[in-house]
Design a protein around this nucleic acid. Sequence first.
DNA 1: TTAATATATTAAGAAAATCTTAAGGTTTTA
DNA 2: TAAAACCTTAAGATTTTCTTAATATATTAA
Lengths: 232, 232
Amino acid sequence: MGVSILVVDDEQSIADLIEVYLKNEGFKVCKFYNGQDALKCIMSEQLELAILDVMMPDIDGFTLCQKIREKHNFPVIMLTAKEEEIDKITGLTLGADDYMTKPFRPLELVARVKAQLRRFTKYNASEPFREEKLIEFSGLVLNKDKHVCTLNEKPMALTPTEFSILWVLGSNRGRVVSSEELFHEVWGERYFINSNNTVMVHIRHLREKMHDSAEHPKYIKTVWGVGYKIER
Amino acid sequence: MGVSILVVDDEQSIADLIEVYLKNEGFKVCKFYNGQDALKCIMSEQLELAILDVMMPDIDGFTLCQKIREKHNFPVIMLTAKEEEIDKITGLTLGADDYMTKPFRPLELVARVKAQLRRFTKYNASEPFREEKLIEFSGLVLNKDKHVCTLNEKPMALTPTEFSILWVLGSNRGRVVSSEELFHEVWGERYFINSNNTVMVHIRHLREKMHDSAEHPKYIKTVWGVGYKIER
DNA sequence: TTAATATATTAAGAAAATCTTAAGGTTTTA
DNA sequence: TAAAACCTTAAGATTTTCTTAATATATTAA
């Protein structure tokens, strides 16, 4: 039985996106496209965390957050509009434990969710934010702190973008990551207007540096019509 | 016996929220919803840090800060409104050591509090905390007490800012420190509005004094798109 | 097999980040 | 108070990285 997370966003595509990512991490997701339904859920269900969009037509996220706070103290993460518009809602997100501005990186949201849950469950957490800092597999080591990468103990110089891409693929080993998703994670944009060729070029550079080929890749494999993946 | 922190905000929910987070970290919290009561506390209590909201009906945060500065020099963190409005009040935050704009992430505030306390205790040698006073590596010795530096036994004159930067990099050997982080550690203020060029110029001066080059640096290495680092 | 679609490769120009230099302003020191 | 030391800013140069666009190759489906 997993942890239950409430997700509320009137933009269905976003709510759906979040749902996919959270389910992928083994969370139980209660998803709603409006505040009314979410409110019922808050009253009846046993929840461990809530992700609320601030701007919603019927009941806004702030009100929802207040409702939650009347009875519960589990973590609440708010999704707010772009920075520019934040001044309109200044102070209102304060009941929340964390907030993210749209567009956001899905994996970052997942990381925040986990961080908040850690905090909440063991109510002492002296480390504010403990992210994964190291990825290791098949002779490849990625060290985020040092921003350094080695392949079979030999240093491999990577540009920032290359490092990011490899990091995303490496932390999703065994799963196919689409170009679009890669774009979200690395560039942080919600939609990628540019052709995905940019991603492709970076992939190529990565393969080159890893002495990998597109035909018989050892590391980054192409999954036709879907995306790229690194085996577990 | 923990560290005492003053928290003043007329928005009760915010003050309460901060209190929860600080207590969770083992701090002793003196919380007030108005300036008057806080003022009394400042006079009578032994405090180590203060978090003040700028906008308050009776006594605003600036005035409180001034009152504090008349007698104490412990760190003060201001909570201000949105960025745009800050320009108007830029000069006024001068008494403060750091400030955060609303809405903020509670965990970030906690991190800032800890950073300020670190800074403060460093300069108050009598404090119970025992910090590292000496850094030694690859022929470089930094002595914090004497604020003196030698390179291969030869004295190397450093300005205060240069010393601080080198200290931060030296005590984080092996890890990349972003310009933003450097700025925060050394200047203690919020991230620069202008450009990080100031940091860059200091880095250049440091390299010059260490007979280091930007192209093939022996000490301070540039990690593109991330920051600077000194190898372990 | 062929057309249609998806991915790869390449190289060059654009963009971004960093470096350098020097001048002017501020603070500290004598 | 003047001189010296220090810090910041600004502009342009340089380096590195990213994106674009054109072309090539591979895969799929008809």
